[in-house]
Amino acid sequence: MSALAGPTLPAPWSTPERTALQVEARRFALDRLKPVADELDPQRADIPADVLGEMGRHGWFGIMIPAEDGGLGGGVFEYCLVSEELARAWLSAASIIARAQGLGTAVGDPQRRRELLARSARGAWIGAAAFSEPDAGSDLGGVATTAVRDGEDYLVSGHKRWCGNAVAADFIVVLCRIEGEPGLRTLLLEKKPGELPPGVTATPIDKIGYHGMTTYDLVLDRVRVPVSARVEAFGMPVARGEGFAALERGLNMARVQTAARAVGVARAAVEDTTAYLQQRVQFGRPIGEFQALRFDLATMAARVDQARAYYRQVAAMMDAGEPCETEAAMVKLLATEMAAEVTAQAIQLHGGNGYTTEHQVERYWRDARLTTIFEGTSQIQQLIISDRMLGRVRS
């Protein structure tokens, strides 16, 4: 199977619209995005603005935004479908589209909300999420960033970690505590791309992979934000009175999309390894003729297809409005651990060449390893699943 032919959509998920969307994303990923990734990832450079502009014109920043607001009007299934195709070329490209999709549009003024949704849909309102902190990752209850009222503004101070795209973003959604109020709130910190507001300092985090989108450590020192910049449900669109349900849906959606991204990276490893086994000659014949290597490749391909079928099932459940917290955690756990193992095996099948930067399998391995960590580690997913099966362990 050629990379461009790729996996197709089987019944009951196949529609002409989805097939066209998949083919469009696949061609862009392999013809346009992958050459850029192959060149820039070793330089640890960000996705170029012109590539982001092309992605915007395809509509991928607004896959789940309603058509009347300028989006594609798709669901989680379409979002994951495109995410897999983009991740096959460069994981960061599949991640940057999550910084739109209506993020940072849940403002109070309806006209302003519609304006921001339209910008989000065309890739002109791409943000960053400042949720985690040095002492608050999976446990967001430990968030210590605080906003203090000062007239018509808040003064926000705190330390944020793992904030991808913070400098290049049009805005940053900041999770914090508002002095005198219970619980956590989100504030919309608007900014110019390439700049930081007064009081914000950003230090790049030196990662081993996941290049293409710089990740920052942020320090906020009495950053002035208007009181009107309060947004709902982590900055995502939400119906009135459905904040908690929207938050849970957002977390589930992020897990399923991460599964799709992991499948895309693992698929890249399988496709590259298939080509390598046909090209590499040892003992007078292509190494793809050796049964041990053939069987390893077959198992890798089967595991990728298994994870793909599962993420599509859970995405369809979400679009149907069915509760799927357990399934979202399961598919995130299964797909990301699969990706880490399949990409590692791809390096093994490349032999010594796999341990060089001359082949892309080392990039796939570095990126796949992260999918087991972000959006909730594998251990957090196991906790969610076991709690649903056995009940929570009492403190």
Rank of each mutant, 00 (worst) to 15 (best):
P66S: 05
G75Y: 08
D206S: 05
L189S: 09
E289L: 14
V238N: 06
A49K: 07
C80F: 00
N353E: 14
L117Y: 13
M318N: 06
G108P: 00
A239R: 10
D387A: 07
R113K: 12
V174D: 08
P16E: 03
R122Y: 00
Q306T: 10
H211C: 02
R240V: 09
A136E: 07
R366E: 06
T145K: 13
R222A: 10
R222D: 09
G354W: 13
K191C: 01
R308Y: 07
H159M: 00
G209N: 09
A98P: 02
L196I: 03
G71Q: 12
G164H: 08
A45G: 03
I287C: 07
P12V: 01
L218V: 02
A329G: 05
R113F: 01
E84N: 15
P193D: 00
F77G: 01
A259P: 06
T274W: 11
Q111A: 15
D305Q: 13
F283P: 08
R249M: 00
A100G: 06
I205Y: 03
R261N: 15
V256T: 00
G180H: 04
N165V: 01
Y311E: 12
L91M: 08
F374S: 14
M64N: 09
D272A: 13
E54G: 03
E84D: 14
R303N: 15
T105I: 01
S395C: 07
L293R: 09
A106V: 03
G141D: 03
